[in-house]
């Protein structure tokens, strides 16, 4: 089994894994980072979104081996101690989560949007979320939270 090594949430990690191991399974099963979820098997739902080298990707569609040497950030790596990331805080403030299952992927995706587009319009937010499914919220409060977080992050 080949060895993979990468930096996850600032920590260097490595393991021997089967080549067919997906990054999401490496995170969940090997590293115990179960905040990243699997909600589909067709690369569409976005529950598994993490950042690889600062960019949002679907960790269910990347082999662990493909992340060799990469910097990976998961939902567990966002908060600074007890202090939530502004996006996490905005999700809480605006009730942008219900069951919480899609939430990690939503938050990771939203942070990447705001990084690329500091002042996204409602339309841009809704379009950006095309790769993130939520069955609880009707997206209404997610859109509100992302707009609010963008404002906070602009300072």
């Amino acid at each position: 089994m080949p060895a993979v090594s990468m930096t996850v949430n600032g920590k260097k990690v490595s393991a021997d894994v089967e080549p067919r191991t997906l990054l999401v399974h490496y995170l969940r099963e090997h590293l115990g980072l179960t905040g990243t979820h699997v909600g589909c098997d067709t690369s569409q739902c976005g529950a598994c979104v993490v950042h690889i080298n600062g960019e949002s990707v679907k960790s269910c569609t990347v082999l662990a081996a493909q992340a060799e040497g990469a910097k990976v950030t998961t939902i567990e790596g966002l908060a600074d101690g007890d202090k939530l990331h502004p996006m996490q805080e905005a999700f809480r403030e605006h009730h942008a989560l219900q069951c919480g299952f899609c939430t990690p992927g939503m938050v990771m995706s939203a942070i990447d949007l705001v990084k690329k587009n500091k002042n996204p319009s409602e339309k841009e937010i809704r379009e950006w979320l095309s790769g993130n499914l939520c069955r609880c919220t009707g997206y209404h409060n997610i859109v509100k939270a992302i707009a609010a977080a963008a404002q906070t992050m602009r300072g």
Partner: peptide, 19 residues
């Protein structure tokens, strides 16, 4: 009231069956 359960969900510490 802002939800009490949100902190764990927002930090990836929810505990679902598959976890």
């Amino acid at each position: 009231v802002r939800r009490i359960e949100d902190y764990r969900f927002l930090t990836g510490r929810g505990t679902y069956t598959d976890d």
